[in-house]
Simulated scan of single mutants.
Amino acid sequence: MTQSTRIAAGIASVTAGAALALWSTRELREAKRASAPGKHIAAARAFNHGSALLALSVLADSAMEHYRGSFENCAMYLPPVVAFCSLGAALHGGTDARAESHRLRRAIQICGAATGTAGTAFHLYNVTKRPGGLSWQNLFYGAPAGAPFALVLSGVLGSIAEQLRDEPEHDPQLFGMPAGKALALVAGAGLLGTAAEAALLHFRGSFQHPAMYAPVTVVPVGGVLLAHAAFASPRHAARASVFARLWLRLTAALGFAGLGFHVNGVVRAHGGWHNWSQNLFAGPPLPAPPAFSALALAGLAALRMRETER
């Protein structure tokens, strides 16, 4: 094992261990509150926290990447601005314990989801207009088609949190189904989408490090387990979510561990942090891995609701 690999493994282990310990403590505390009145408000606030972490990831990523592109198109200023507003709205919602939605927060989150959708369309257009059209080469080196999807997820989580606050306390519903079931499906779909983007970028990197297989194996399993818990009958929901809860904690820790590995990727580049202005752009994207942690947080909140649904 090379020295750089040992450093990466050490950073990732410490980061993941600390994150897992914090998440476990939080889960024990939240589990005690699961059957208490207002559990849907606790789930809404957890979705706000997930939305905030995703918005922060998009803010950092879009600001860096669009700066690298010299903001050639005026529309490139929009994602960082919208992500900043979404971050503020989500942080405000995460501290709000009222059982009613906030119109301005909801409008900002819907705007974020719409901006992310438009950004996905622009990025796909950028890929297809290149010579060769839709090809692996263009998917690898064109505008990242999956990057704006994180802003879509941030807006979706934030707007769902606002909608959930308006639901009745004892039988909250979303999209015509029990709220816990709907939340689990949304979080599971988000995990599968982010895993697909990680698979594309790590395939571009030829999976040169064994840890690069983790996001494409651990994260999709978390999405499948959430779907299984969502469709399990109410009487079996608690049993179905036991393993899913443990796996989502692992997924949450993986997001922070991935951040450690990406930091090490920047350090290993020529000049390290002394040449940060180049290595931050050329190295692995630092804001990407925490998206797994954000969605795992939302999935854990969904499981807590699902276990108490009749």
Rank of each mutant, 00 (worst) to 15 (best):
R105F: 09
A229P: 05
H123I: 01
F175L: 15
L225I: 09
E167L: 04
A227H: 03
L200D: 02
G176L: 09
F175G: 04
K181Q: 14
L192F: 13
G222M: 06
T194W: 07
M177Q: 14
D171A: 15
Q163S: 14
S206N: 13
S206V: 11
W136Q: 13
H228R: 14
A118T: 07
S135W: 05
S135A: 15
A143Y: 10
L192D: 02
A232G: 09
P178D: 06
D166A: 14
T217M: 13
P215M: 11
Q109N: 14
G146M: 10
A179V: 07
R204H: 12
L134Q: 08
H123F: 11
S154W: 01
S206A: 14
P178Q: 06
A143V: 01
G193Q: 05
P168W: 11
A230Y: 01
A195Q: 06
G188F: 02
V224N: 01
L201R: 14
N126C: 01
G193T: 11
V219S: 09
A199S: 13
N126W: 12
V224H: 02
A121Q: 03
Q163E: 13
P144W: 03
T117L: 14
P172V: 08
P131I: 02
R106C: 10
F203D: 10
T194L: 13
R235E: 12
V216K: 03
L201D: 11
P172K: 10
T194S: 12
T217W: 09
P172S: 11
P210V: 10
P178W: 07
C111N: 06
E162D: 13
G112L: 00
G188T: 10
R105P: 02
H170D: 15
V186A: 15
A161C: 06
T194Q: 12
A113H: 08
H202P: 01
P144Y: 08
A121C: 08
G205R: 14
L134P: 02
H228G: 00
T117R: 04
V152F: 06
V152T: 03
I160V: 15
P131W: 01
V219I: 15
T217V: 15
P178E: 08
D171M: 09
A184P: 02
R106M: 13
L151H: 00
R105V: 08
A211I: 12
V156H: 02
G133Y: 04
A187P: 00
V219G: 05
A195L: 05
I108A: 02
G116N: 12
T217F: 13
G133M: 07
K129F: 08
A145C: 07
A145G: 05
L185Y: 08
I108F: 06
P144D: 00
S135R: 10
V219N: 02
P168N: 10
C111L: 15
V156R: 03
H209R: 14
